[in-house]
Simulated assay, not measured.
Amino acid sequence: MALRATIYKAAINVADNDRGYYGSHTVTVARHPSETDERLMVRLLAYALWVQADERLVFTRGLSDTDEPDLWNLDLTGAVQQWVEIGLPDERRLLKACGRADQVLVLAYGRGVDVWWAGVQNKTTRAGNLQVFALDAEETKALSLLADRNMDLSINITDRNAWVSCDRGDVSLDVRSLRELV
């Protein structure tokens, strides 16, 4: 018998001072049996970083479907406007995503971020719609401690720093840019 996904519910209050966006969102996220609390919380952070006022950024089947990103924003015709990857995707996946979406965003995390980026950076130079950001491994470990089946998260974003707080504690994360659009 296969293991089933665990359902997490989160009320996310976003105060993005960099973009002048302030909003409250209620999301339900399925955590794949092989997914860690750390990855789940990084997905929620990515949602807060890139949610749009039109609220079309949604969680996909993620780990359950290799043809979909972790989050995406589809326009009314079904075309992919934003494709958001979490973790350390290989260059083939990134280039394929760049061909399918208007904008591809990667939020890399873990101890191997710098090694991963050194390996894929030159192979993705022709991808003009790719942006890559990285999180510190110790900060994402601390973020994972905030995970709970029902969460009320406040995420304040200022100068590429995300302050995540809830009743279980708070964490400050530096969202480091590795590659931005020119």
Rank of each mutant, 00 (worst) to 15 (best):
L45T: 02
S154T: 09
R149P: 10
Y22T: 14
K141R: 10
G87D: 02
V27N: 05
G99T: 12
A97S: 14
R168A: 14
D37M: 05
Y21I: 11
S144L: 04
A10S: 12
N73L: 15
I157T: 00
C166P: 06
R61A: 07
Q131D: 09
D75A: 14
E85S: 09
D37C: 06
I157Y: 00
W163N: 11
D70G: 12
Q82H: 14
L130T: 12
L88S: 05
I86K: 01
G23Q: 03
T6K: 13
L107E: 00
R100Y: 02
R176C: 06
Y109G: 01
L135A: 00
A79W: 09
I157L: 00
W83L: 07
L135V: 01
C98F: 03
K141S: 05
A30W: 15
E139G: 02
A134H: 01
F59Q: 01
A162P: 05
D102T: 07
D174R: 06
L76I: 13
N129M: 06
V164Q: 02
R168K: 15
N13M: 13
R19N: 07
D70R: 05
P69R: 07
D102I: 08
R176E: 06
A79G: 03
H25W: 12
R19H: 10
Q121E: 14
V120Y: 00
K96H: 15
R61P: 05
N73H: 15
A162S: 10
N13A: 14
R19C: 04
G169D: 02
M41L: 06
N13E: 12
M151K: 08
D65Y: 13
G119C: 05
R19A: 08
D75Q: 13
S177H: 14
L173Y: 03
E68V: 14
H32R: 06
N150I: 09
T28V: 10
R31E: 03
W117Q: 08
V106D: 02
L107K: 04
T26K: 13
R100P: 15
A134F: 01
D136N: 08
D75W: 14
N17M: 13
A108P: 07
N156I: 03
N150G: 04
V182Y: 09
E68P: 11
G20M: 07
A147Q: 05
Q131R: 15
R111G: 08
R39M: 02
E35N: 02
L178M: 09
